[in-house]
Write a protein that binds this DNA or RNA. Structure first.
Length: 861
DNA sequence: CCGCGAGCCTAC
DNA sequence: TGAGGTAGGCTCGCGG
């Protein structure tokens, strides 16, 4: 090959973390530049400054409904907009679909995004209807250029710039496109602080860096004067330049604490000093950057939302762990123990956090070691739950920046897809909150009554992606709804509620179109996942699994967002039509099955539990003796029955699937609580709803109930009753280790000042009608008084000391506590109540369990 | 002792 | 100004 001459610019792939905009130039010559921050596929931190996009929004007039009949009076109305201050240009009209039908729509272009709110107000007062008027400017870029999180730019780096990144580019909008998703080699920093309870000062800090370049994790300890700690942590951030900053509960503790100490050591307006302490952003150290109230030099949080800083994102390991794991308790040591049970030394609590000042005075080295360890654990946690990869997959599928996938709301993800398509299909985009509010609740799914008892051989059928399928099948969309007053409606589907939606031949809805695409996308990733598994390609398995999961999450989010009262593309008929069709489908199937003489044991929303007639009378549990059940034979009988039934009752888009085969199903007679022995597609115990599934239960109850369930599924009646009595009595006699009796409940409270250091900082009455009657509030109060902080919504753990009092007396439980006394009778009664619901199906009530004998035997005939 | 509402958490 | 939904079981405190 000869010498290669570069005619085109080089190409760089980047994963975008977050973006912001800034004004350049003065007055009428000013324009807006969008800075996108991210990390390139080669591992460089990058800023891409994009110019060429102007802020716009759209409007229509009630007086003008056709492009062909624009009178001079009409034109006057439009011209009045053109002469408004800060209006650069009015273009149009183009015809767009609005919920008043097809209408001419004009576009207003202005110079700066911050002019939009005042212009919006002005046009509203002039009686125009506004569209696309509340889209954040960075989102506008993503929508207009159809960008997703992973992009490719054609550009050469620029040498002079103000940003604190490895490489900077300045491009026009034609130089950036979406590319195939790739695993972005993010650099993550995790940190932790130890602080004084006496005076709130920072005693020491520790931080870890994990680069995705194959190098080992490194860490640093920060000690000394508080100002030195703050300054060197800030230098550390810039030196290692992380994309993602994590830590355990940093949103509600460490970040607020750093901000508070920054203020303590600086005066108002001393922006240079403040930047030295907390200027973590990837931007210039200027007064302007320091005073930005979001995405600036200094991390900020607007109201109760997430923290923002220029160019990096915060990902709180507490929040991630809570969402992914739903742990029974939420302390760092508990979550670490849950994930890494074998690494006991890693999370043994050897420092008394409620006595930090004394610990710091006497055992400084140990406290620092403890701090280093607690700073590292969030990295392990995020890795273990694959938080970054999964979030990246969601960002990729929803076509949003990483920050939105991490800290944004569900409606932002849906918006990203729906608005893009609306623009393409010439559908005007109404503003959030513009829909008529929902009147009361809509009716939801149908739940079938269930009788107490053991039911052998039950096939579980369910509708595949029920709500999305209905939305596709019935073409349910904001854009396909027909007004009930319409005298001659086009061809349509009519919901049981009477609402009408055009057929897809007439006009395909945006939402059904998107859902179909997502379904296909999921199938593709599932297929690729299967191939990757066969080929033992771990990277591909991880990628396709994360992607198919992200698609599933997104698909299932559509119904909720569209059934909500405030979403921009909703109408109250959408949600109620979806659920009405769902109820009609499932009730129809149940009725048909029953007419055929089949026994429907249970059903919830999209599932149906049917007994297999051919197997009734056949023993359903395997025992060790010679008469063991021929499981293979029965499984295939069940499979035949289930698949045939599913096929027979599948209709159009309502596809029934044989989901599970149970050799036995048990219910004590309450909806949403059952257990079963699954024999197909794998063998496992299935439990729903019962205390074993609940995070506000206690471990001894959970363990006892699980054992009881094993007996139930084998129909070992004598054993199960004897076991239940034995467990209840162990509690009655206080023979159970108190660590097995920890109760945990989430506790809310309006936080008036973060971090919380005194009872005055939290208003519990804002969340509870009678706060002092709530055990979790009394526990939270005790913990705040001990200097252990408080986060609204976080679980608190406690032991019941005296359950005979009303309200019950409780003591907080924290990890180092070992010898708390407890009210054995209270716990025995709770256990007996829970187990009694099960044993009652076998003739033993909770009362019987408490006294250890059967009083009700008198009536058992 | 019972019924009711507040609150939590789950199933889907 | 902030924002997925409804159905349902169960515990506790309170008042009759």
């Amino acid at each position: 090959m000869g010498a290669c001459i570069h005619l085109s610019m080089s190409s760089t792939k980047i994963g975008i973390l977050t973006g912001r905009y800034r004004a350049v130039g003065e007055g009428d010559d000013s324009s807006t530049i969008i800075d996108l921050f991210g990390r390139s596929s080669e591992g460089k931190s990058v800023v891409v400054s994009v110019s060429g996009l102007c802020p716009t929004f759209e409007f229509s007039s009630v007086h003008i409904d056709s492009i062909d009949e624009i009178t001079p009076e009409h034109q006057q109305l439009i011209d009045a907009v053109n002469v408004l201050e800060h209006v650069e240009e009015v273009t149009g009209p183009v015809m767009k679909w609005t919920h008043f039908g097809q209408r001419p729509v004009w576009t207003v272009r202005t110079t700066q995004p911050f002019h939009v709110p005042s212009l919006r107000k002005k046009l509203e007062s002039m009686n125009f209807t506004l569209y696309s008027a509340d889209i954040p400017f960075v989102n506008r870029l993503f929508l207009d250029l159809d960008l997703a999180m992973h992009v490719e730019i054609q550009a050469e780096p620029i040498l002079e710039h103000e940003f604190r990144v490895d490489v900077a580019y300045e491009i026009g909008i034609e130089q950036i496109t979406t590319c195939e998703p790739f695993p972005v080699p993010f650099t993550i920093c995790s940190f932790d602080l130890e602080t004084s309870i006496e005076n709130n000062s920072i005693l020491c800090g520790a931080a870890w860096i994990e680069s995705n370049d194959g190098s080992r994790r490194t860490h640093k300890v920060f000690v000394g004067q508080e100002t030195e700690i703050l300054a060197s942590m800030t230098s550390y951030i810039h030196e290692h330049d992380p994309d993602i900053i994590t830590g355990y509960n940093i949103d509600n503790f460490d970040l607020p604490r750093i901000k508070e100490r920054m203020m303590r050591h600086s005066k108002k307006g001393e922006w240079q000093r403040q930047s030295e302490f907390f200027g973590w952003g990837r931007c210039a150290q200027t007064e302007q950057e320091a005073s930005r109230n979001r995405d600036g030099l200094i991390p900020q949080r607007l109201s109760n939302r997430s923290w923002t800083v220029c160019g990096r994102i915060f990902m709180d390991a507490w929040w991630q762990a809570r969402q992914a794991l739903r742990p029974k308790r939420e302390t760092l040591s508990f979550v670490a123990q849950l994930l890494f049970p074998e690494q006991e030394g890693k999370h043994k609590m050897d420092i008394d956090a409620s006595n930090m000042d004394e610990e710091w005075a006497n055992r400084r080295e140990e406290v620092m070691e403890y701090c280093v360890r607690d700073a590292e654990l969030p990295l392990d946690i995020l890795n273990e739950i694959q938080a970054v990869r999964r979030t990246e997959a969601v960002a990729s599928v929803a076509r949003v920046v990483m920050d939105t996938a991490t800290n944004g709301s569900t409606s932002q993800l849906i918006d990203s897809l729906v608005i893009r398509l609306a623009d393409k299909k010439m559908v005007a985009v109404p503003r959030t909150g513009s829909a008529e509010p929902k009147e009361g609740q809509i009716t939801g799914g149908y739940v079938h009554d269930v009788d107490a008892g053991l039911y052998p051989w039950v096939a579980v059928l369910d509708f595949k992606s029920m709500y999305p399928s209905i939305m596709i099948g019935k073409n349910i969309c904001y854009t396909t709804r027909i007004e009930p007053s319409e005298p001659s409606p086009p061809p349509h589907h009519k919901a049981p509620t009477g609402a009408m939606f055009m057929t897809s031949e007439e006009k395909k809805g945006l939402v059904p179109f998107l859902l179909e695409g997502l379904m296909e996308k999921r199938d593709e990733h599932k297929r690729a996942l299967g191939i990757a598994k066969q080929q033992d390609d771990a990277a591909a398995v991880g990628f396709h699994d994360a992607m198919q999961y992200a698609v599933k999450i997104l698909m299932n989010s559509f119904y909720g967002v569209f059934a909500s009262g405030f979403y921009r593309f909703t109408h109250r008929d959408l949600g109620s039509s979806i659920t009405a069709w769902a109820r009609q489908n499932i009730k129809g199937v149940i009725t048909s099955l029953e007419q055929e003489g089949l026994s429907v044991v249970y059903s919830d929303t999209d599932s149906i539990f049917v007994q297999v007639p051919e197997l009734q009378g056949v023993a359903y549990f395997s025992s060790n003796d010679a008469e063991s059940v021929d499981l293979n034979l029965h499984t295939s009988t069940m499979f035949e029955f289930g698949t045939q039934l599913a096929q027979r009752f599948s209709k159009d888009s309502a596809v029934l699937e044989f989901e599970k085969g149970l050799s036995v199903f048990f219910s004590h007679g309450a909806k949403k609580r059952y257990l079963g022995q699954v024999i197909w597609p794998n063998e496992e115990m299935l439990v729903r709803g019962y205390e074993t599934q609940r995070t506000d239960s206690f471990q001894f109850l959970i363990d006892s109930m699980n054992t009881l369930f094993q007996f139930v599924l084998k129909d070992q009646r004598d054993e199960l009753v004897a076991f239940a009595i034995e467990q209840v009595h162990a509690l009655k006699r206080n023979q159970v280790d108190v660590a097995q009796l920890v109760l945990s409940k989430s506790c809310k409270g309006k936080v008036l000042k973060t971090p919380v250091t005194s009872l005055r900082d939290v208003d519990f009455a804002a969340e509870y009608a009678n706060p002092d009657s709530m055990a979790q509030v009394r526990v939270a109060r005790q913990m705040i008084e001990r200097g252990l902080g408080f986060t609204s919504g976080m679980k608190v753990s406690f032991i019941v000391e005296d359950g005979s009092k009303s309200p019950v007396t409780v003591k907080p439980w924290w990890d180092e506590e070992e010898s708390l006394s407890y009210d054995g009778t209270y716990y025995a009664e709770r256990l007996a109540t829970a187990l009694g619901r099960i044993t009652e199906a076998f003739g033993w009530t909770a009362k019987d369990l408490m006294q250890g004998s059967r009083q009700s035997s008198l009536f058992s005939f």
